[in-house]
Each structure stands twice: as C-alpha cells, then as structure tokens.
Computed example of a mutant assay.
Amino acid sequence: MDNGEIEDIDTLVRTRRALHAVAELVLAGPQYRTSGTIRLRAALGGFATRAEPNLQVVGADLVAPGQRLFLERTTCAALADAVGVEAGPPAGLYQDGCGLGPEDVIEAEPGAAHRIAQGFVVGDAALRRLLPGADPVIWPEHFDLGVTEAAVNYGVSPGDDFLAEPYAYVGPHTRRSGEYWNAPFGAAVAVRELGGVDGVLAFFEQGRRLAG
C-alpha cells in the first residue's frame, strides 16, 4: 500500500473503533483495576499496557504471554476471557470512550490497523524529538497519543468525527487564530500528508512557535 493511499474509509473507521474498544476495555480497564493507571503506550506495531496485565495489540492481533488472538469477528469479552482479565472500561474516570460494550462484535482489518499503528509510532518518535524526556501517552478515552507543554497539547489521533484517518494535531488550551489553526481545537493535518517523523515534527514545531 502506498503512503498516499487511504483504505476504504468504512474499513478504517470500523478498524479504529475495534482497536479503541480493545484499548479501553481489554487493556486500560484491566490495567487500571490491577495497577491503578489507565495510561497506554505506543509500541512496535501498535500499542500496549504500561503495567500488569502485560498485553499488546500488534496490527490486528491481541498479544499476551504465549497467546496471539485475531481481532476478527470477536468481542472484547471473549478476548478478555481468553487472556484472563475482566473486560470493561476504567470506571468513573471520564464520560466519553469507544462507545462499545464488552459483548459488541468487533473486527479489525490488518491493513487499516497497520495505518493506525504507524500513526502512533511516527507520532511517538516526533513527540520525543519535540520534547526530549517527554513520555507520550495513549489515553483510552479518545484513543489519542499526546503530551502537553505550556498549555498546548501535541499529539496524533487515529481518527475521529473531525477527520476519519490518523492525523497530527496541536491544540492550545486558549484558542488561536490564523491560517495554521484549521480545526475547532487548534490545528490538524493527516499523518500521510506529513511524510513521516520529520514532517510530523515540523508540524509540531510550527505549532509551538505560533502558539507562543
């Protein structure tokens, strides 16, 4: 697949919703109940927990010690049961989320999952270069990877109602005006348009300058 191509949008959205559900209900919720944190991290091929239980999503698969489960016409309840955790979000911490329950059927397409994973990997590398010593976090509420510095959010979203595909964003806590600020929350550009880590970093650096 060429970097300029986009998967069928319906497939991309369906896959993103599936991955978001797994991130929230199978990784972050059980991690919160076991280890007291909802923070997830970008990992090679996808994303992972930071503490027990040791779980990772690689492409369109859930990986646990000694197990690899396909995210193909399954449910978060079934996945959680297979890896020995209880499916469910971290209770009482936020209002939004994936919008799916443990028994809802999910399915992730490998090509679309790779596109989303690459967004996280590229974003993580760019954020660490922008802010050396930063610890980018994937938050399960909105399933975005981000850091905050001086009242400005920097990150990568796997897509949402604003833009269906993975995009980099800069979001000042106080609204700015000007050509760069093209989104209701600040600025956003599709990751595929930025050409890799250097392009995403340049986008972040421009936003940092303009945010003042």
Rank of each mutant, 00 (worst) to 15 (best):
C98D: 00
C98L: 06
G99D: 13
L100Y: 14
G101M: 05
P102E: 14
E103P: 01
D104M: 11
I106H: 01
A108V: 08
E109L: 06
E109P: 00
P110N: 05
P110Q: 13
P110V: 10
G111R: 15
G111E: 15
G111I: 12
A113V: 04
Q118K: 13
V122W: 13
L127Y: 11
R129K: 13
R129E: 12
L130Y: 08
L130K: 00
L131A: 14
P132W: 02
P132I: 01
G133I: 08
P136S: 09
V137M: 07
V137P: 09
W139M: 09
F143D: 03
D144S: 02
G146T: 03
G146L: 10
V147Q: 11
T148V: 15
E149K: 14
A150F: 05
A151T: 07
V152L: 07
N153E: 05
Y154C: 04
G155H: 03
S157R: 08
P158K: 00
G159H: 00
G159Y: 02
D161Y: 09
D161P: 00
D161S: 13
A164W: 07
E165T: 11
P166H: 10
P166L: 01
Y167T: 10
Y169Q: 04
V170L: 12
G171E: 13
R176N: 02
R176C: 04
Y180W: 15
N182K: 08
